[in-house]
Nucleic acid binder design. Sequence first.
DNA 1: GACCAGGCACATC
DNA 2: GATGTGCATGGT
Length: 210
Amino acid sequence: MRKLIEIYRRLYRTFGPQHWWPGDSPFEIAIGAILTQNTNWGNVEKAIENLKRVKTLNAKSIQDMRAERLASLIKPAGYFNIKAKRLKAFIYFLLNEYHGSMKRMRDVEMRTLRTKLLEIHGIGPETADSILLYALEKPVFVIDAYTKRVLSRHGIMEHTKPYEEFQDLFHSTLKKDLRLFNEYHALFVRLGKTYCRKNPRCEDCPLEGI
DNA sequence: GACCAGGCACATC
DNA sequence: GATGTGCATGGT
């Protein structure tokens, strides 16, 4: 699928490197991946800042914290009651399986780990893949709403197709390269955020004619 | 005041 | 298997 290469080329030429994921540690990235579910990143930053301010951005503190307290700290990220439970579910897994160490989690074989992550309540395919790619540096392609929108808009795949089908398209077309997968997904988000939203008519789109 | 944002689980048909 | 709904804040 040459189009996928061309789309990447154009996005990179237009926007340049995106330096993802914004976050100071693998643990913070994983927390951010859960908090950003259907949520504006700016709101997630506020929630993470709250956790940092009271020095609780670590597995042990979050596990020991009452769900109500956690919910109030992450309030700016929205869905705070649900996300408090999801964070606790992920941290329960991290502490029990890997002694709270993202480094140890990283040592697990990719497919095995992906399956385990998907078994955690509140972690679906996009969140699992975001953690795998950006926190653990595994070469998996992350599919999100923007990616589906762009590909369906350009007649490459219908947006109703399941997550894995979109992902397979990228996996079978592109070299399994960590840096490429990192940059490509970030560029899709950049396009959606800074361009599509402000130009619903798609005028002067960098992908025009693809 | 509507609409949207870097999803997911669950109910219902 | 497809389709609909609740979850919630803050910016445009």
